[in-house]
């Protein structure tokens, strides 16, 4: 379980997260939505220790990660995978090497085990034939599917998605969402920052609505999309739906 308690994060004088508390249970799919600049991405990045919180605590499986040392930080990052808006594949490595690098380096898997796992994952995201290609030869949708496979190669228990489809051409959004839906079905615990309301509605167990650094609503998708409680959520939904 991921538990966030009274989290604050400031960049200089700009407080982007104000008193955030939330829980993500094993097997849950949580959609985090809200207008741009509401702090959604920063929240994810705090959970993955890419940002250091100014105040508050984050627990991952009962371990307080806000007071963690370097070695345990690596352990946590093995457990928590991250998929970025702009993919961030390693451009000088082939697709297969992108998938095998961290398992071999960080999890001390043998090359053979890692390759086997990578091939399995590429098949799962429908990109077996791209194993030897360099990322620059892939379309945006393919890149993001490789990025998801790369995160899965570490066998994480949690997967964080930071606007995984926002940088994609519209016709490529579906292939990425399909992979994510498939993951959700198989019980992966996921936190997804997204502007895809259809996805949030269909796949999420819980919707978190954020605005100006605060969580305004936590609800089931049916409840949130049909009966938003706050004016700001109503406002937001009117604009995006």
């Amino acid at each position: 379980m991921i538990k966030v308690e009274q989290l604050h994060k400031s960049f200089g004088n700009n407080e982007v997260l104000k008193d955030i508390s939330l829980e993500i249970k094993k097997g849950d799919v949580v959609a985090i939505i809200g207008p741009s600049g509401s702090g959604k991405s920063t929240l994810l990045r705090c959970i993955n220790l890419l940002e250091t919180p100014t105040q508050g605590h984050i627990f991952i499986d009962d371990q307080n990660v806000t007071t963690i040392n370097n070695r345990n930080m690596i352990k946590i990052r093995e457990k928590v995978g991250m998929v970025f808006q702009h993919f961030h594949l390693f451009p000088h490595k082939t697709v297969l090497e992108n998938l095998t690098y961290a398992p071999v380096k960080v999890k001390n898997k043998t090359k053979q085990e890692a390759v086997q796992k990578a091939e399995e994952l590429l098949k799962r995201v429908g990109l077996s034939e791209k194993a030897e290609a360099y990322p620059s030869r892939l379309s945006g949708g393919q890149k993001q599917r490789v990025a998801i496979a790369r995160a899965l190669a570490m066998e994480p228990e949690y997967l964080l998605f930071d606007e995984p489809t926002s940088a994609l051409d519209p016709e490529m959004v579906k292939e990425v969402l399909d992979v994510m839906m498939d993951l959700a079905k198989q019980g992966m615990t996921m936190a997804v920052v997204t502007h895809e309301m259809g996805f949030a509605r269909m796949v999420a167990d819980k919707v978190i609505f954020m605005d100006q650094g605060q969580i305004l609503e936590v609800a089931s998708p049916e409840e949130f999309f049909s009966h938003p409680k706050t004016d700001r959520a109503k406002d937001f939904l009117e604009k995006v739906l």
Partner: peptide, 12 residues
């Protein structure tokens, strides 16, 4: 993003 991607994968 390259630093972050490597960091997120736990690469030392």
């Amino acid at each position: 993003g390259q630093f972050e991607a490597a960091g997120a994968l736990g690469v030392p």
